[in-house]
Design a protein around this nucleic acid. Sequence first.
DNA 1: CCGAACTTACCGATCAATCGTTAAGTGCAC
DNA 2: GTGCACTTAACGATTGATCGGTAAGTTCGG
Lengths: 206, 206
Amino acid sequence: MSSAPAERNGTGPPPRGGGRDAITAAARESFAERGYHGTSIRDIARRAGLSLSALYYWHPSKQHLLAALIEESTHDYFQRCDDALRGTGDDPVDRLDALVRVTVEYRVARQVESNISTLEWRNLEPENRERLEGLRRSATRLWADIIADGVARGAFHIQHPDDARRAIVAACNAIAQWYEPGGDITLPQLAERYAAIALRIVDHRA
Amino acid sequence: MSSAPAERNGTGPPPRGGGRDAITAAARESFAERGYHGTSIRDIARRAGLSLSALYYWHPSKQHLLAALIEESTHDYFQRCDDALRGTGDDPVDRLDALVRVTVEYRVARQVESNISTLEWRNLEPENRERLEGLRRSATRLWADIIADGVARGAFHIQHPDDARRAIVAACNAIAQWYEPGGDITLPQLAERYAAIALRIVDHRA
DNA sequence: CCGAACTTACCGATCAATCGTTAAGTGCAC
DNA sequence: GTGCACTTAACGATTGATCGGTAAGTTCGG
């Protein structure tokens, strides 16, 4: 497969170190496959090749495992959005194009976390959910501001900007649910196509 | 809230009959709120105002409860699609318009079941899932055929019909996740707007 | 260069609580 | 007095979490 200390074959002492990453990866896969409540912490430990207790050595609870996963990937999305929009002028067409592209790329690059975030969001305990709800709202504002600006400047010709925004976001987000990494459609193609779809949704006319 | 024998208030004899409906309704609400694995059959029974075993008198298992729920609402969607398309000519513009409208209406009318179907689909046991997968595929074909016909007839001007289809379906399906029944946007308005969005996605030109 | 003190990274056993499911019994309508 | 619509009580299995223990690795005074 890959790097240094992998592949246990039964002989020799069990490997030390890397437990934290192994557990995080196992949790990610398990949550993605069976969902939060469908996954037991024993599933995760087994998958990581560690004991149940090792999980509690690295993480205080099952809930923390989910929250950390969602939180990290959400912040990653925001970082990507900021980076993309910072390198773009103030033309709403360019900005919408950039935001769609970065969203499509994110849904593919972090497909597993995307699906976990959308499907398991409701299983976050209130404390964790509330902490992230602010981020979610600013994501909505990111889209809404660009679309509103495009309408104001006469680049987009829609009566209902909120519906356009929801349609674009829903279409982009759904990519994580059907995209197959090994398929014959490449990421740049996909980004290109969805950017075009988004511009049609906001009724952009050149 | 509504019909005949509801609202227990502690006094009087326990109500007889209606147990089946009470359990189905309770399961629907519980699955919607906490998800399949997040819901215990004790939650459902408590909500229905019945004992745990009454649930097993009416349904053979928790899994059956979920499968029946999804199956019934999926068939309902197909019935509505058939009815709507039967009353429509062969113009792909009219047919896409009709299919979008019926889908939007369904997502609002059966909002709870819509969300359960999408979120809990993966928790169906293989036997149940396979039985429904055929329906799901024919839904995809319904959309794909209309769009392909529109492209062939020169009504829709898109290069990638699959992406358009996925975008439209994703946008319609997402309605169930954000729509608020008490809100200020009516169902006819919503259907109208989404029909317009869909026609823009397929690049319809009059 | 040594060994005591301490930390890191785990394991096995076990906890009370809850899970889905079942068996056996009860009250009421007809 | 029969059968439908339930109930109470219990089953073994599994759940998330905690316990004390321990083999390695690290630090550091002498």
